[in-house]
Amino acid sequence: MAEDSMAEDPEDATAIPPPRPLDSIDQDILQMLQTDGRASIRSVAERVHVSRANAYARINRLIEDGVIRGFGARVNHERAGQGTSAYITLKIVQNSWRTVREQLRRLPGASHIALVGGDYDVLLLVHTPDNRALREVVLTRLQAIPEVLSTRTLLVFEEEDLEPQG
């Protein structure tokens, strides 16, 4: 299933309802779907001991509430031709987060963007075919963004996605 493009801007309160507490069944459903996003409603219902209608309703509510943002595949970037990965830290002009975020979203190979506290303002994860492409991203694309004051590149030697305990 394709990832939904729900608004995630904290100032856009109309996009999703306020969070409500998740019970143990909701938590079990989330854990199961994180382990296998292709699980059938029937298998989810059996695993968490509810009816199929109840499982279906709960999953839909989790989607509508913005708890589940979408469904996707976990990709081995190296096998997909994106053998170079790096975390890039950025210092940006104060109050330019929204502008910078929009430009980073369009950056080829960007897979995670976070506004962080500490010595840097933004943490960006990129996957590129090779070091030459990474160099292009950092020196040509990122440093051309007027609000980016500085960058630091941390080359990833090896990575592993942590799988939920199932």
Score class of each variant (00 low, 15 high):
Met1Arg: 02
Ser24Lys: 15
Ile63Leu: 14
Arg20Glu: 15
Ile41Trp: 02
Arg74Lys: 13
Arg58Cys: 10
Gln103His: 10
Arg20Val: 15
Ala133Thr: 14
Pro10Lys: 08
Val122Phe: 00
Pro19Ala: 13
Glu163His: 05
Gly81Cys: 01
Met6Tyr: 04
Asp9Lys: 05
Asp26Lys: 07
Ile41Phe: 13
Leu125Val: 10
Gln31Ser: 13
Arg135Asp: 09
His112Pro: 02
Glu78Cys: 03
Pro10Val: 07
Asn54Trp: 06
Thr84Trp: 02
Arg132Pro: 00
Ala114Gly: 00
Asp65Thr: 14
Pro10Asp: 01
Thr35Ile: 03
Arg105Thr: 13
Glu147Val: 10
Gly166Leu: 13
Ser96Cys: 01
Pro17Asn: 10
Ala144Glu: 14
Arg42Cys: 07
Ala73Thr: 11
Thr99Arg: 14
Gly66Ser: 09
Val126Asn: 02
Gln82Asp: 04
Glu8Gly: 10
Glu136Ile: 03
Gln165Glu: 13
Ala55Arg: 06
Asp26Ile: 14
Gly118His: 00
Gln34Trp: 06
Gly72Phe: 09
Gly118Glu: 01
Ser85Tyr: 02
Pro19Lys: 09
Gly70Tyr: 04
Arg98Ile: 04
Gln103Glu: 14
Arg98Cys: 07
Leu90Pro: 08
Arg79Trp: 03
Tyr56Ala: 13
Val126His: 00
Glu78Val: 05
Leu33Ile: 15
Asp130Asn: 15
Val48Phe: 05
Arg74Tyr: 01
Arg42Glu: 14
Leu104Phe: 05
Val93Pro: 02
Met32Trp: 05
Asn60Phe: 04
Thr153Gly: 06
Ile68Gly: 07
Ser43Trp: 02
Lys91Val: 08
Ile145Ser: 08
Ile113Phe: 06
Asn95Pro: 00
Pro108Gln: 08
Asp161Cys: 04
Leu124Ser: 02
